[in-house]
Design a protein around this nucleic acid. Structure first.
Lengths: 114, 114
DNA sequence: GGGATCGTCAACCGTTGGGTTGAATATGCC
DNA sequence: GGCATATTCAACCCAACGGTTGACGATCCC
């Protein structure tokens, strides 16, 4: 009854809860990438990365377009807007601190393994 | 080596991924609450809510203080700052849209069950 | 002391999540 | 056609999650 149907925020936050997936998003921030190239720096199978990408796509955080035999992954930052709005409603903190962001990126990229 | 030790963002995002927990945070936005009162609107056991609160506390999103036999739960919005910064780094979207936030709150409160 | 209230603990259960491996399906190239 | 590359599928494993119930430790109040 009243089908539970997961809220969009559920899938977005759940997708962001995994460090591998956050690292992937960070990588895609620089450029679109093929699945194989996304997988390269990680110490896990290609199939595992493929699943992670599916989760990110399901959440709308990336889109995937197949050109030839290569599937290109593209960041979709707009999907974060709803979640960002939700969170900011709690904090009313200072808008954007890009220095802090840089630090996070470095920390995550330094320990990307899993 | 380099003990995997989950990143703080892991726990924060994981905590936010559950609609019950987001609803709890929303309730706490209005006022501090006792565990029993937090549990009241939900169609699940007190023990379940107690666990949810533990998850939120673990993530630093709330603090709990026991006064007498009542344990008071208090929102800690600062814990969202790191996550917010991380997300905003992707979007560069408009800072705070409180209208949108209001809409989210209503949507979540209208279907708080589970 | 004794009863009610507040909250957690412990054990259990079914589902989901992240990972593996091996086979299968495209597609590109010669 | 035939082989290599790119990606997914399918089956499986184990750990974690979200929930339940019942017993338990505190605390308040009479």
């Amino acid at each position: 009854m009243t089908a539970p149907q997961s809220h969009p925020l559920d899938t977005v936050f759940a997708a962001l809860a995994d460090p591998t997936r956050r690292a992937i998003l960070t990588m895609l921030l620089e450029d679109d990438m093929a699945v194989t190239d996304v997988a390269e720096p990680f110490a896990m199978s290609l199939a595992a990365i493929s699943k992670h990408l599916a989760v990110l796509a399901e959440a709308g955080l990336i889109t995937q377009e197949k050109r030839g035999r290569v599937k290109w992954c593209k960041l979709e930052p707009d999907a974060l807007r709803a979640a960002s709005v939700w969170m900011q409603g709690f904090g009313q903190f200072d808008p954007v601190d890009l220095d802090a962001f840089e630090r996070f990126l470095e920390a995550e990229l330094d320990a990307p393994d899993a």
